[in-house]
Design a binder for these strands. Structure first.
Lengths: 329, 329
DNA sequence: TTGTAGGCGTTATCAC
DNA sequence: GTGATAACGCCTACAA
């Protein structure tokens, strides 16, 4: 039999002050200059009666919800969750709450989600994807400040990983270890991540004065099987590479097998660098995989920062992909 | 220069009806029996003026927020995220929204999170943990219906995986494949998952008329390294097991290495079953790992179902751990 | 069928 | 220093 919730009125009545006064002390407003005595009595009453301000009512009157909406196709994924995580942490630190809805990529659900969030009067939205890709967002999304994370649509501000820099970083790690012939096991050349990473790869080679050999650049899908096959092709070349830069850790996982199958060892005979830093693969492979990480947490945090910036989201940002050093090169 | 939001009043004025009438048609109330004509005009106006009901205002007046709070230490984890995912999906289907706050297990943050959620007037809360364990929740949590997921505190209703059933299932899979000597690489015997799984293991053996050999039961931590070491011990026994039931997929990953190192093969020589169904390990191991899955999604969905059940959360539930058949036995 | 009026719990404006 | 009083946007008896 839960008693009626205690309201601000109850507090006011209890301490014999007006609602206004109570509101002021609870919101810690100093401009209205209230006696220490009254302040204390109010706080005591709050504690004694177990009063909790009603955020909904407050929002209605104050016209701010402190809510940020998130619509994303990221679900259980072992990775990518970092975006939501980073956003959540950043939001929490600013007293904002996230309203997250997972859409599984279904456009119908996305539109419904945006509507629902708009009805909740979110003050901004984040649209985040698992894969780096171009998207078309529900148009209602533009009704509030919105930032795209890990995706872009040519119009809205976005936060993207700097794939080119990542590609360069990974490649250079191999070069620094003395490798001159470095194979690139790329993703489907059409996807944004692939073009960026390849550009970075070529740039790193150029900077080291190493000519790019097209035969050393192959591509496949993001699976261990694919990595295995592509690595095998590369290793069976007449003049095989001694370093392998794989565009996903899964591919690197497959590459390990190809290397092993040829009686070679990582890293003594072949240096391998992955991409994604999927802990569960990278850290537990033997030897542990040196890989380029996608800065998910930072991307999520950056998006929130852009949204809460009083000057508005700005144009967009790109975030570096740091190298995670382990033992495969 | 965003025009003032359009309110219900605007609609009413626009169509020349009262707010009441508009409210009724928008909320689809049939009891009040309104002319088709009026209904249509209202909906047209809604569309034309781009009206969106204000969920906050609605909550205030109707005394229901359709909000469920989630406090959890599950973050980016490659697994466990399924709980939030399952909860989110179930909530969405019921028109509820989740207010999720990740606490990283910090009790201070947890308490603050609960307060914040209570101020938002969530109608129920879910407290979910990554690991199956006993917890102490912030006491304010009991102010609304709450269910614990993947954890328990002896008082609140909870949703737990049926570890014993899972232990039995995994073990039986090995037995069914003809194995009679089956090693159990358990977790720290003190943790709930370990006691449940071991009980299931012993039960399966008993049902098959196989005596339990204490030397076949070892334990370690949930790492590949630990799995490697424990498996090695077992395989080096005078009378080694032919089947290995590992309490985590990571352990199984290590066990694979131990098997391989001894010139044996999975599954021909040694059958291996894991636990957790961490896709990224289980599916990409060679051969792919047969493993017992933790029903995260179902647990999350069950929690939401309990919360939205008009009869209240009830006492608690336990959910089965299905076997995911791959190729390691 | 439709309209009136009061209430939900706060904030905010101004006067006292 | 403090207190009426009017929003905020919507719901809902109750009346017409």
């Amino acid at each position: 039999m839960p008693r009626r919730r205690v309201s601000m009125d109850d507090i006011a009545r209890h301490v014999g002050l007006s609602r206004t006064t109570v509101s002021f002390v609870i919101n810690g407003r100093t401009d209205m200059n209230i006696s220490e005595e009254s302040r204390k009595r109010v706080w005591d009453a709050v504690r004694d009666l177990g009063y909790r301000p009603d955020a909904g009512a407050r929002s209605l009157a104050a016209r701010r919800t402190d809510l940020i909406g998130v619509v994303t196709d990221i679900t259980t994924s072992p990775f990518g969750g970092g975006i939501v995580q980073g956003a959540q942490d950043a939001a929490w630190r600013q007293g904002k709450l996230l309203l997250i809805v997972g859409t599984d990529g279904d456009p119908g659900v996305e539109a419904a989600a945006v509507d629902m969030l708009l009805e909740r009067r979110v003050e901004g939205m984040i649209y985040a994807t698992l894969a780096h890709r171009e998207v078309a967002v529900p148009k209602a999304m533009t009704e509030v400040p919105t930032v795209l994370v890990h995706c872009f649509d040519g119009a809205l501000p976005h936060v993207l990983p700097d794939e080119a820099e990542g590609g360069r970083t990974g490649t250079r790690r191999l070069i620094d270890a003395g490798h001159r012939r470095i194979g690139l096991i790329n993703l489907d050349p059409a996807v944004p991540a692939a073009v960026g990473r390849r550009a970075g790869y070529e740039r790193a080679l150029a900077e080291a004065g190493i000519p790019v050999d097209p035969r050393l650049i192959v591509s496949g899908d993001a699976t261990a099987t694919s990595g295995f096959e592509r690595a095998a092709e590369l290793l069976d070349l007449d003049d095989p590479p001694t370093g392998l830069f794989c565009c996903t850790d899964r591919m690197a996982m497959g590459a390990y097998d190809a290397v092993r199958e040829r009686g070679l060892r990582v890293p003594q005979d072949i240096g391998v660098v992955g991409y994604d830093n999927q802990e569960i693969i990278a850290a537990y492979l033997r030897p542990p995989l040196t890989t380029v990480a996608l800065p998910f947490d930072e991307m999520g945090a950056a998006a929130v920062a852009m949204l809460t910036d009083p000057d508005g989201p700005g144009a967009g940002r790109t975030i570096g992909c740091p190298l995670v050093e382990r033992a495969s090169v």
